[in-house]
Amino acid sequence: MKSEPLIEVVDLARYYEMAGTIIKALDGVNLEFYRGEYVSIVGPSGSGKTTLFNLIGGLDRPTRGKVYVDGVDLAELDSYELAWLRCRKIGYIFQNFNLIGVLTALENVALPTIFAGLPWEEGLRKAEELLRLVGLSDRLRHLPSELSAGQQQRVAIARAMVNDPDIILADEPTGNLDHETGSRIIGLLQRLNRERGVTIIAATHDVEMIEGSDRVVWLRDGRVEKIEVK
């Protein structure tokens, strides 16, 4: 299994300058993520988890170092190619779900297929299939405001999956959920990882989530403190 890494992070650094002082959000991180892995990123608030995700997703450019996705150096991609990467290769899941308020569950899930160039009807069909997979086939026409937090996060997971990405970046996906609901979301992510082979990288404080992962990366002050193989 240990062949070419799907994502390779080399000496990655991201500094912010704030009122004359330099904040080292990430400072020389080296990591490899392999296809089909389930990796948890753990670290105290401010340790650089979100910053790392922004760099892997090509939303941000590093101060120093490289990110390779499928062997491609992200620094060599222009903004069009980076948008394509975010659309087709990577799915995002956020702590606060970030669904589009005026779209139904079905339309929310289908939205990324527009950017992928799929005909709308085809996108809706795929969306329906994924909503069934996450157990929401009876909530297709509901708006996010009409769904519970756990249901919203399941819609968000379906949306992240709709363009068949290789990678899912989940930034504290259970952070806004109660324990039991969070548990179900974790189970769902693990199932997607096992059954569909999607690589999951999740920033989390959730013990249950950490327990279920293949590896745990501990970040502190923008550096990798340790890597634990489960």
């Binding site: 991609l77 948008a83 394509w84 005026v102 939205l111 527009i114 950017f115 160039g117």
Partner: peptide
């Protein structure tokens, strides 16, 4: 990766724009 980029045409803008117009005050 492919030199390809993402899509969002006039019809897509109408579709999403109409939802926003309908759904917001």
């Amino acid at each position: 990766m492919t030199g390809d980029s993402t899509h969002f045409g006039l019809i897509d803008a109408f579709r999403l724009g109409l939802r926003y117009i309908r759904g917001r005050g």
